[in-house]
């Protein structure tokens, strides 16, 4: 874990400090006098020896201290964590919306394998995960928020909004993401259930005379959900990619909007902080997924899945 974190920080350091060359010139633009560029580089430390910069950047990764934003001069950690909280809320709502539907759809498809229902679900899933989130989001926005007046075009809820009111603001962007997730989850569940249905333990359980329902819940689902959980955890990085587009369309002040703003403003510390943070979340979520799988299916020991 720590080694991975160190490597992650190194990769990000290479991307922001070594490859682009003169950071001050990039940020201040070609019109800035050379003296000002030098002052800038001095202030952010890019004039120091690379090795020293490298150690600073590693230390920052481990202490979650990414310095101050070039633009607003606010603390990057605060900005990134605030934004992450909002993105997390959005992603959570999307999962809540999508998980029951897509798991049920996956199970139905598996049980009706190769029948019409299965085909419909499989292809709907394929389509839903093939359409980029930003496209779905734009369509939802213009139809619901603009034309019909349901839901909000600006998704940031007011400060004192209660849970129901917040839901009203978040439901459209969350739906856009839920639609994209549906495909991933339904298809993985289907594959997992099919494998489990054909597995020996299922046959044994059926022969032991357990009811279909008992077999399904106690044996099939337990085993079938493992790959689904793995997929969800491995997809975290992609999910954050999709969230950027959705947040842009709905002007939601999450990590995606923060990143995009930082891209426009060449605000490297913010980008660095955001990428590091998402990387860490990925690491934590894969770990949690491993633990969850081990809990669901005690026969799999940690590490044996790899």
């Amino acid at each position: 874990m720590l080694v991975t974190l160190w490597l992650l920080a190194t990769i990000v350091f290479l991307l922001v400090s070594v490859l682009p060359g003169n950071v001050g010139r990039k940020v201040l633009g070609p019109f800035a006098p050379e003296a000002e560029v030098q002052r800038y580089n001095q202030a952010i430390g890019t004039d120091r020896p690379l090795l020293q910069q490298y150690f600073t950047s590693i230390r920052r990764a481990f202490t979650l201290d990414f310095g101050k934003s070039y633009g607003t001069r606010e603390d990057v950690r605060d900005m990134v964590l605030d934004a992450l909280g909002r993105s997390g809320k959005l992603a959570l709502l999307a999962f809540v919306l999508t998980i029951p539907i897509s798991i049920v759809a996956g199970i139905i498809a598996a049980r009706r394998q190769d029948k019409i229902t299965d085909r419909v679900i499989v292809n709907a899933g394929l389509a839903s995960s093939s359409i980029p989130e930003f496209v779905t989001a734009s369509v939802l926005l213009s139809i619901f928020a603009v034309q019909l007046g349901w839901g909000k075009a600006f998704a940031n809820p007011p400060d004192n909004a209660g849970p129901i009111e917040q839901l009203q603001y978040l439901v459209l962007p969350a739906t856009a993401m839920a639609i994209a997730y549906f495909g991933y989850i339904a298809r993985m569940t289907r594959a997992g259930v099919i494998t489990a249905l054909h597995a020996d333990y299922t046959r044994t359980a059926t022969m032991k005379g357990l009811s279909k329902r008992q077999v399904m819940v106690r044996h099939v689902l337990r085993n079938a959900l493992a790959p689904t959980i793995t997929v969800i955890s491995v997809q975290i990085g992609y999910l954050f990619g999709g969230i950027i587009g959705v947040e842009k369309v709905f002007n939601y002040a999450g990590l995606g909007s923060l990143m995009l703003g930082a891209v426009g403003a060449h605000d490297v510390p913010v980008l660095q902080g955001a990428v590091m943070l998402v990387g860490m979340i990925y690491m934590v979520s894969t770990l949690l997924a491993d633990l969850l799988i081990a809990y669901l299916n005690p026969r799999i020991r940690l590490g044996a899945t790899k």
Partner: peptide
Amino acid sequence: FIFSDDIDTQINGVIAGEA
């Protein structure tokens, strides 16, 4: 003042009646 980096979102907000 409702902030956005993106002019399209600002315009959408005006048309949707949120600005």
